[in-house]
């Protein structure tokens, strides 16, 4: 079943499109990573899906309903980011108590166990929490709500490395125990990719790719060798990424669709192969033309 459907979805702000004719579907009970550079449109998409923003044109359906002003979507989804507006008069404990009345599938035990595990105090107030603690608390609310559609916008902001690791583990465990559709945006794909099923990569409001993490990991291949030896194998290819190093050596990232014969030939020529991680590939695929033409070294020298 499709939980999310976008067709030609566009969100126009003055002078630019935050989302530009975006079409995508997300199936039920998938754990999907939303990635892209700053300003790619991740937050805009998430806010539209949770009904907090309205698209300018195109179509968007969540649980087969238009999410904006939809009570059904609102009751069945939760959007967690670093600007949660919890009532300032309530203590942390009171926020959890009230949340349990808001969300049909709220899991009391999970909420309180995590609350204790991460060392929160019942009488603390949300506004006094440090950045990392705030994210941790928001994460607890997002998980305990167990909404059929759970959306996390950069949930690990400010968390230390140990807490981030805990978070990804808890996320997976609770997803296994209680499968639901989870959309999570991140700038650190490498930290969470093992737990994801799919990746949706955006760039300047457009979809670059949407595929399973396993496909993404095998999509590209890195080749290392002398430029003149590499060249014939790359004749009618458009490399995704090129790096020159040492004396005429090149590192080329390209589509991993060489025939077995080509690979054997390359190997004989002494060309080295390497896998290209999903997170590196996402960076290479979203490097703008201006960044490709001028490297940082050119600007800084």
């Amino acid at each position: 079943m499709k939980i999310i459907e976008c067709r030609q979805l566009t969100k126009a702000y003055r002078g630019f499109n935050a989302l530009d004719q975006l079409s995508c579907t997300i199936e039920e009970n998938k754990l999907v990573g939303l990635v892209g550079r700053n300003g790619a449109g991740k937050t805009t998409l998430m806010k539209i899906l949770s009904g907090m923003l309205k698209g300018t044109s195109g179509e968007v359906k969540v649980f087969s309903h238009r999410p904006f002003n939809s009570l059904l979507v609102s009751a069945n989804s939760i959007f967690i980011d670093d600007q949660m507006n919890f009532p300032t008069a309530l203590s942390l404990a009171e926020i959890l108590e009230e949340s349990s009345r808001f969300y049909e599938h709220w899991n009391e035990e999970l909420a309180w166990h995590l609350f204790d595990y991460f060392g929160f105090h019942k009488k603390e107030h949300h506004k006094n929490l440090s950045k990392g603690k705030e994210s941790t608390f928001n994460m607890i609310v997002g998980l305990a709500a167990r909404c059929p559609l759970t959306i996390f916008d950069e949930p690990t902001t400010g968390m230390d490395a140990a807490v981030r690791k805990d978070f990804y583990r808890i996320l997976l465990k609770d997803y296994l125990a209680y499968p639901r559709t989870i959309l999570l945006s991140t700038h650190h794909l490498e930290e969470v990719e093992d737990q994801l099923e799919e990746v949706l990569l955006l760039d300047r409001g457009k979809k670059v790719l949407h595929m399973s993490i396993e496909e993404l990991r095998e999509l590209a291949i890195g080749l290392k060798g002398k430029r003149e030896i590499l060249a014939p194998f790359l004749a009618d290819r458009n490399p995704i990424y090129t790096e020159v190093f040492g004396m005429g050596d090149e590192y080329i990232v390209t589509r991993n669709n060489f025939s077995q014969k080509e690979k054997q030939e390359m190997k004989r020529e002494g060309i080295q192969f390497s896998g290209v991680s999903a997170s590196d590939l996402c960076i290479y695929l979203t490097t703008s033309e201006s960044q490709k033409r001028r490297t940082l070294d050119d600007i800084l020298n």
Binding site: L176, Q195, L196
Partner: peptide, 17 residues
């Protein structure tokens, strides 16, 4: 696939594959 996902801390779809 769920047991493997838990043991290896990976997505169950990956384990299923």
């Amino acid at each position: 696939q769920y047991k493997l996902a838990d043991m290896y801390n990976i997505n169950p779809a990956t384990a299923a594959k």
